[in-house]
Write a protein that binds this DNA or RNA. Structure first.
Length: 282
DNA sequence: CTCCAGGTTCCGG
DNA sequence: CCGGAACATGGA
């Protein structure tokens, strides 16, 4: 495979960090890089310094990994405080990628109250069971199941994939899209608030998951998902020794304090907190 | 065994 | 608007 790899410039980018930061869940280590599907395309990609090598079309890969995002300009908008600075040092080169909307929405519906490792496991199970089989040389890969494919399964069948109570939500969402009740592409034209409200019409989608989808699939880089990790960071860092900080207050603070690239700041804080505080590092 | 994980929804103050 | 409880599953 290595003979046929195309090359593309990828300055200010850290592939491994980006793929392991909890925004996308199906890429697997392979040789010197990773294999995964970008939509229906089987992709191998590896990083050598400031360059990527891939079997796929360079522009296609560059778009997926958002290599056009002005990372240096984005960093300049980050607030200047110790916690944010540490996260930036730790996560430099992490990019918010452009995921297909349906795949991102469906994956985050299965993410509620689940560890990252388990979200990945569910993604692989669903792909293998209901997704299109793809081939990359000797490797077998699977696309995420289409809306139609999941819409015609059953709650029972999905529960067999360890979805638990999320099965009903995933199925209901697939059916709402399959019957035209909500059109994911129409959301692209909406402003952030309308888009968020539209996403919240799906069962199992509340503000947090809607914000993840806005950030990871609709390129709304201001969207600031607040999960338990981020909530801890906010409370401990910016509201230390304060009682009674409501969810509403946290939401308002994060929107104003982190600014126009709040979604980026959020992902850096999230990944840094998770990486440094799980292996007994505290 | 107990605790917790990239939450949402429903219900009673 | 706010706090609690129920909801499934598996890894630590």
């Amino acid at each position: 495979m290595s003979r046929a790899l195309a090359r593309l410039a990828a300055p200010e980018f850290n592939l491994a960090l980006t793929l392991n930061s909890g925004q996308v869940f199906h890429w697997l280590p392979h040789r010197n890089g990773f294999v995964g599907a970008i939509g229906d395309a089987p992709v191998y990609v590896e990083q050598r310094g400031d360059e990527l090598r891939t079997n796929a079309k360079p522009q296609f890969v560059a778009r997926y990994f958002a290599l056009d995002h002005p990372l240096m300009d984005i960093y300049r908008t980050f607030p200047n405080d110790p916690t944010m600075s540490e996260a930036l040092t730790f996560c430099r080169g992490l990019r918010i990628i452009r995921q297909p909307a349906w795949e991102c929405l469906a994956t985050f519906i299965t993410s509620s109250m689940k560890q990252v490792a388990h979200i990945a496991q569910i993604s692989h199970t669903l792909r293998r069971k209901f997704g299109k089989r793809l081939r990359l040389a000797e490797i077998e890969l699977f696309a995420y199941p289409t809306v139609a494919a999941l819409a015609k399964t059953s709650e029972l069948e999905l529960r067999k994939c360890a979805l638990g109570y999320r099965a009903k939500n995933l199925l209901g969402t697939a059916r709402m899209i399959a019957n035209g009740e909500v059109e994911l592409e129409k959301i692209r034209a909406m402003n952030d608030d309308d888009a968020r409200a539209e996403l919240c019409r799906f069962p199992g989608v509340g503000e947090k998951i809607a914000n993840c989808v806005l950030l990871f699939a609709y390129e709304r880089v201001r969207a600031f998902p607040i999960d338990i990790w981020i909530e801890r960071v906010l409370r401990e860092t910016y509201f230390a020794r304060k009682r009674k900080i409501t969810a509403k207050r946290l939401r308002e603070f994060s929107q104003s304090y982190f600014g126009e690239f709040g979604g980026y700041a959020q992902q850096y804080l999230f990944h840094h907190a998770r990486s440094t505080r799980k292996k007994g590092a505290r």
